[in-house]
Design a protein around this nucleic acid. Structure first.
Length: 477
RNA sequence: GCCUCAGUAGCUCAGUUGGUUAGAGCGGCGGACUGUUAAUCCGUAGGUCAAAGGUUCGAGCCCUUUCUGAGGCGCCA
């Protein structure tokens, strides 16, 4: 049996002058004497002092960058300046030598793109190990938040037979021979002979099924992988991402917005409280990165200050119509500096959202009551006949983090809207029945998990906050 | 999918108006070093200049096409 102490735990209250055993990867090997170890338990490292005369040459030679070692020795107050304590090595075990003549990583700054291509090693770096510890923290906080408030975690299907959600391109799931699929009499592919007896896809949203849960368990949430086959080439989109979708009975758009704001603030607070050292490192990383940038291109605040600011201030709340007025009154608009035109009924573009969030309000903004024609069929129609009870939460740097709505619970209105938008009611009969048989006002939203992780870690590209990103032309590892 | 920029050593980059044998730092390899903190010092190897085609006496540099990447936009979470 292997026994060891984790560095994070050891450093919380260092048991000086006791024998300890640590195991981890060598981050630095200096002067044939000082070995810096990180074991992934936290961002902290522990320095090991190696007396060359106590160990054979073979052991000393095997120590190198990112080699995997175990050390037993006495934890002592450090004689050097950079650390409080260090381990005086008595026994060294080489678990895994590292052939540096072939190893791609170096103990220096490496580009995100290079590390993305070497994802089998990138978690060994300070940046990525911090990012993925924080990612875990956010995931845990999601479950804790909902559990503590009486929500039930509902697992909605990954493979879906709904072809009617209209939420963009889907990945097909099939076991048919792609070179010679069975055909129907009129020459179309006969999905009746496929595994499920019908055409199936990977899910683009668990919302419709979550509504089933809400109409019985009251408050539910989903948290699982979601797939979009859109050819999106941006730093904010993935083909495979994780989405959190709470769905609550007896709730309107106001309840929905309150939940969204409280929830996001909770996630940020949780990380500030439990991942302070990782966030501190990520904060310093960004400052280092922005050193050579023009003042106008730098963030107005550091990472941690930004996170604190978000949790300590109310989100701005406006309607789509009010947002449009603000934009039309803006100097940017009057000087013709927006690339896209503004008129009631068209969707806000990224540049408009950024103006609202980063210039006008300088904090997160919730925009509600969008024109019905630019939103999904299931959103509840407002009394004005023009808008629906939809809401988007917009954040600085990353834009839309949450999209949600009160759902249309009136069956006749829902059927009418589906007909207008060419959504096939026959495939969604089960969904309509939630209205026919004991429905109620209800609401929910979708939070892009990677987007909030991106915001909390300050990472510029969403591909760097998921361990194995899936995007157009990218399915390695 | 669209626009812009880029692709030179393992990594990050320089390479002049087109002109001999392609440069640096880091990393690697060999050596020195018992208090280092991106350790330091000495030595050394390493390149199909993304690919194909073209212009030219001559192309890393100019032109065309393709591939790859980044940033921005669209689609959205």
């Amino acid at each position: 049996m292997i026994e060891r102490q984790e560095i994070k735990t050891l450093l919380q209250d260092p048991p000086v002058n006791t024998r300890v055993t640590i195991m981890g990867w060598v981050r630095a090997w200096r002067g044939n004497r000082f070995m810096v170890i990180n074991d992934g338990s936290g961002p902290e490292t522990l320095q090991v002092v190696v007396d060359g005369e106590r160990f054979d040459e073979e052991t000393i030679r095997a120590i190198g960058f990112h080699a995997c070692v175990g050390v037993t020795g006495t934890l002592a107050e450090s004689q050097g300046a950079g650390q409080a304590v260090e381990v005086i090595a008595e026994e060294i075990t080489i678990f895994g030598e590292n052939d540096l003549s072939r190893y791609p990583l170096q103990p220096k700054k490496q580009s995100m793109e290079f590390l993305r291509d070497n994802a089998q090693f990138r978690m060994r770096t300070n940046t990525f190990s911090s990012v993925f510890r924080v990612r875990h923290g956010v995931a845990y906080a999601v479950n804790k938040y909902f559990h503590d408030r009486g929500y039930y975690y509902l697992h909605t299907p990954i493979i879906t037979g709904n072809d009617a959600e209209g939420a963009g391109e889907m990945f097909r799931v099939s076991v048919l021979d792609p070179t010679n699929p069975p055909r129907t009499a009129d020459g179309k592919i006969d999905y009746n002979q496929d595994f499920f007896g019908k055409a199936t896809n990977l899910t683009v949203s668990g919302q419709l099924q979550a509504e089933i849960g809400a109409m019985a368990l009251g408050k539910v949430y989903t948290f699982g992988p979601t797939f979009r086959a859109e050819n999106s080439n941006t730093s904010r989109h993935l083909a495979e991402f994780w989405m959190i979708e709470p769905e609550i009975a007896f709730a309107d758009i106001e309840n929905d917005m309150d939940l969204a704001e409280d929830f996001v603030k909770y996630l940020i607070n949780y990380c500030l409280e439990h991942y302070a050292a990782d966030l501190q490192f990520l904060d310093e990383r960004i400052q280092e990165l922005e050193k050579n940038m023009k003042a106008t291109d730098r963030r107005p605040m550091g990472l941690i200050d930004t996170l604190r600011f978000v949790v300590e201030n109310d989100f701005a709340r406006i309607t789509y119509t009010e947002a449009l007025d603000i934009l039309l009154q803006s100097k940017t608009y009057k000087k013709g500096k927006f690339e896209f035109d503004l008129s009631w009924g068209t969707d806000l573009q990224a540049e408009h959202e950024r103006y609202l969030v980063e210039k006008h309000f300088q904090r997160p903004v919730i925009v509600r009551d969008y024109p019905k024609d630019i939103k999904a069929f299931y959103m509840r129609q407002n009394d004005d006949g023009k808008t629906v009870a939809a809401m988007d939460v917009l954040f600085p740097y990353i834009g839309e983090v949450i999209g949600g709505s009160q759902r249309e619970e009136r069956e006749d209105r829902l059927r009418q809207r589906m007909a207008e938008m060419n959504v096939h009611a026959d495939e969604l009969e089960w969904y309509l029945q939630l209205r026919t048989f004991g429905g109620c006002p209800h609401a929910g939203f979708g939070l892009g998990f990677e987007r909030i992780v991106q915001f909390i870690t300050g990472m510029g590209n969403i591909r760097d906050v998921i361990p194995f990103p899936r995007a157009p032309r990218l399915a390695q590892f």
